[in-house]
Every structure is written in structure tokens, then in C-alpha cells.
Amino acid sequence: MGFHEVRFPANLSFGSTGGPERRTEIVTLANGYEERNTPWAQSRRRYDAGLGLRSLDDVAALLGFFEARRGQLFGFRWKDWADFKSCRPSGKVSDLDQAIGTGDGAATVFQLAKTYDPEGHAFHRPILKPVAGTVVVAVAGNRQVETVDYVLDAAVGTVTFVLPPDVGTAVTAGFEFDVPVRFDTDRIAVSVASFQAGEVPSVPVVEVRL
């Protein structure tokens, strides 16, 4: 699958609508009870990029980005302003934000992840597109130094240590991250007259599996 490691302009994604989507299959039995199941282990996010447009210059920037991605052909990074940090959106990223593994004395590669509702029925989301320069990592609470103690692969969200963490040591991390997406249309219709009157085009964007 083609993917460009570029982010949709963050000033245009600000103001867009969207969020996670789940797929639940529900069967109602003869006695009125339900059986519920899902074929999706992970949610899939959808957004409307058109709602972040505020001027004709924004429209021009959108069209340029759309053309460079060849419509739906190439994926790209998207900043979800409601969920883009390992901590709360208003918080400061810390190397203790998220548990990403426990050392066993042999493993050196750890996948970045974010846990939702850790006090209840926790859901673990792999983070595949961290933002380079924002990732901080700790082992047993001790901050590690990037390029000295570990290497980050920002294209897949993995942390590779030079030396494997000791058995039983907690590996934690903090980060900002993007969502891998693509345009969900091969056509963008813009009316300059209607845009100036307050109407904006619908530009659907959908998360892609990597």
C-alpha cells in the first residue's frame, strides 16, 4: 500500500469533525436476548476535512495536497486534535504516560501503544505513526536517550533498544502521534461562490490499516 510520510496541514484539520468507528454485529434471538460480536479488533476513524476550511487559500492548499496524494491512491498522516497525545490533550507528554512492555532480558523491540480506560475494560491501541521529536522513553522510570539507548522508527511506531531491558523492568513512553489515513473520495467539488457564502465541500478521510 502506498503511503506518504507527510501530514495533512494541521491548521486545516483543526475544526474538522470525526472520530472512531466500530463495527458491531447484533443478532436478536427469539427470546429477546441479543448476541453481539465484532469482526474488528481495532476501531477505524473517519473525518471530514472540508469543515476545517476557512478561506479560498485553505481550499487551494487542500486541492494541492489532494493532487499530490493522487486522490485515494496514497495514504498520509492526519492530526486528530481530540486525540493526539499519550496523555490528555491539555497535558504535557511524559516518559511515564504509557506502558509499552516489560523487559525479559532478550527483547529489544517494543511497539508504541496507548491504553484507553486503564481502570476499566482497557483497550490497547497500537500507535503506528508517532511524531518524530516528541517521543520520550523510560526503562524502570529512568529516561533513555534516543540514538544512544534506543532508536525510534517513526514510520511504524517501534522503539528498538541497543541493549534489551532487564527482566521485569517496566518500559514506558510518552509521545504525540498521527493517524494513518487516506482520502475516501477521488473527487472534490468546490464552488467558489458557495464557499464565500459560508458553504464548504465535503472531503471524507478514512483511517487505513497498516
Rank of each mutant, 00 (worst) to 15 (best):
W81V: 11
V93Y: 00
G105T: 10
L112D: 06
S86P: 04
G75D: 02
V136L: 03
G71C: 09
T108K: 14
P118S: 08
F110M: 09
D117I: 06
V109Q: 13
D83S: 05
T102M: 09
G105W: 10
F84D: 02
G141M: 06
V137G: 03
H121K: 12
R70T: 11
S90A: 15
K92V: 14
Q72N: 12
V137K: 01
A138R: 01
Q72R: 14
S90N: 13
D83N: 09
V131W: 00
L96Y: 11
D80T: 04
F76V: 05
Q98I: 03
G101I: 06
V109W: 05
H124T: 14
D80G: 04
R88D: 12
G101R: 06
G141P: 04
D104G: 10
K129C: 14
S94L: 14
Q98F: 01
G71R: 08
F123M: 12
P89G: 08
F76C: 05
Q111G: 02
A82R: 08
T115M: 08
G91D: 15
K92N: 15
G120R: 12
T115Q: 09
V135Y: 01
P118W: 02
G75A: 00
T102C: 08
V131N: 07
W81I: 14
D80P: 02
D80V: 01
G133N: 02
G141N: 05
G133Y: 00
H124C: 10
V136N: 00
A99L: 13
T134C: 00
S90F: 10
H121Y: 12
S86Y: 00
S86H: 04
G105V: 08
L112V: 07
A107E: 13
Y116E: 13
S94N: 13
A140D: 15
R88G: 15
D117R: 08
G120H: 12
P126R: 06
A107C: 08
G120D: 14
A99F: 11
R125D: 09
F76I: 05
D104Y: 06
H121F: 13
G133C: 02
D80L: 01
V137A: 04
I127D: 01
T115N: 12
D80H: 02
V137C: 04
P126E: 06
F76A: 05
A99T: 14
A107S: 15
